[in-house]
Design a protein around this nucleic acid. Structure first.
Length: 424
RNA sequence: GUGGAUGUAGCUUAGUUGGUAGAGCGCCAGAUUGUGGCUCUGGAGGUCGAGGGUUCAAUUCCCUCCAUUCACCCCA
């Protein structure tokens, strides 16, 4: 027996409807906002992520699935969805299309980490990428898209956290202020924070060590050090959110772990699925496209973890149940009727009725029992009597009654019963 | 990479102060004539995570490993 790999998930036949439900809702939301789907490869040149995500980030330094292919190239399974989209945008010359270019994707994402509740080595994301617009209204629309997607699924449990981490110019000033604040206490910080102090002070705010957290509470806020342009952008964003009626919390401690973000960052967080409660996270990344070799292109977007989303919905009792079932089960009441049953099945399917025939050689009783388990709405029975009369016995599995119908009228009769004569 | 918890049938699990295991659900089959849902009866299915040690004897005690799980770092 070879087991599945650590941190991977099988979506089994009895669970796949959950994914369909969520994916259908996502595609409908995408349609409403005129997003077009983009599909990019599962693996890319490692260099893309080094330059896009950032060579010093944890994702790149210790979590990537990187290998050398048979041609000696360094290949990496995508650790996030955005870099590949940026690459495709440049490579296909999408900057020449009318802007903005609004896209969405579904993708597997691979990160080598220890699994726990809400964390896998391969997970799946629904992502949105809005390229070409620098207006704060686009940031607001990204958030609105996520919000209306959650609303369409009935999820009310999520808290929206927003923050602005500024641009390069305000970052420099802020980093200095932060370092000035930290410096007297640097010795009491944890080891990783000491490293962050030099490399990327902003990330100190993200530290979960008790000592560092306490110190961070009174740390200068990024928001107070934004340059006039960034401050205006952040203020406009909040204006749009208020206009949309979207509640949010400004959380100055939100700092994304991917280097490409600037200005707006946000997270939708749930409390119902354990320690890893971030279901959706995103922000603005105006430097990404140029970082991976394209022209200056403002962009904003988010990634949304589908496994976590399904976990939240399950925890909140919003997942519902699988309602897909074959419409009709065809009971082979006599071995001699087998061919007649199979042909009837083909005919029903050709007229749009889903159905199932016996392939197990079961007794009539067992076949009806099975039809009941499948939750079929109707059964057709063909045995010796029906063969000689050229009829089909049609049984209503809900009400329990049954009647004899001429064989050549069977499909039409069943269709009327199932859909009231209106084609599905 | 670090720390804690757990590993008995497909699932949820009981159990033995050490004498090679039961239950519920599920699955399959029956309960006179060609008919499901309720009920009843029967059946299949477990090398008690793997390897080693102690012992006359280990699923039970000890060790190692593996897997799962939760938390940390980090992230969706």
């Amino acid at each position: 027996m070879i087991n599945k790999q650590k941190g991977t998930l099988d979506v089994l036949p009895n669970d796949s409807w959950k994914w369909h439900k969520v994916e259908t809702a996502a595609r409908e939301t995408a349609r409403l906002y005129s997003l077009k789907e983009i599909r990019t490869p599962t693996f890319e040149a490692t260099e893309l992520f080094l330059r896009g995500v950032g060579g010093t980030t944890d994702i790149v330094t210790k979590e990537m699935y990187t290998f050398t292919d048979k041609g000696g190239r360094s290949i990496t399974l995508k650790p996030e969805g955005t870099a590949g989209v940026a690459r495709a945008y440049i490579e296909a010359g999408l900057s020449n299309e009318p802007q903005p270019v609004k896209m969405y994707y579904f993708t597997p994402v691979f990160r080598y980490e220890r699994p726990q509740a809400g964390r896998l080595r391969e997970h799946h994301q629904f992502g949105v990428e809005l390229y070409g617009a620098q207006a704060a209204s686009m940031d607001a629309e990204a958030i609105l898209i996520a919000k209306s997607f959650f609303d369409s699924l009935g999820i009310k449990d999520l808290t929206l956290n927003i923050n602005s981490i500024g641009c390069e110019t305000c970052r420099a000033g802020y980093n200095k202020a932060l370092k000035d604040y930290i410096k007297p206490n640097l010795d009491s910080m944890c080891d990783t924070c000491k490293v962050r102090f030099d490399k990327n002070p902003l990330r100190i705010l993200d530290c979960k060590e008790e000592g560092c957290k306490t110190l961070n509470k009174n740390a200068p806020s990024v928001i107070d050090h934004l340059c006039p342009d960034c401050a205006a952008h952040f203020s406009k964003l909040q204006g749009y959110l208020k206009a949309y009626g979207i509640e949010y919390v400004i959380n100055p401690l939100i700092v994304r772990g991917l280097d490409y973000y600037n200005r707006t960052v946000f997270e939708f967080v749930s409390n119902s699925i354990g320690a890893q409660g971030t279901v959706c996270a995103g922000g603005r990344y105006d430097r990404l496209v140029s970082d991976v070799g394209g022209g200056a292109t403002p962009a904003v977007g988010f990634g949304l973890g589908l496994e976590r989303l399904i976990n939240v919905m399950t925890a909140l009792g919003l997942m519902g149940e699988d309602i897909s079932a074959p419409d009709v089960y065809i009971v082979t009441a006599d071995a001699a009727a087998e061919t007649a049953c199979l042909i009837l099945g083909k005919e029903l399917r050709e007229s749009g009725i889903s159905c199932e025939c016996d392939h197990m050689g079961r007794s009539i009783k067992a076949q009806l029992k099975y039809a009941d388990k499948l939750k079929c709405r109707m059964s057709c029975i063909i045995g010796g009597d029906e063969l000689s009369n050229n009829t089909v016995t049609v049984k209503d599995m809900g009400a329990g009654g049954q009647e004899s119908v001429k064989r050549d009228r069977a499909a039409a009769f069943i269709k009327t019963r199932l859909y009231g004569g209106v084609k599905k």
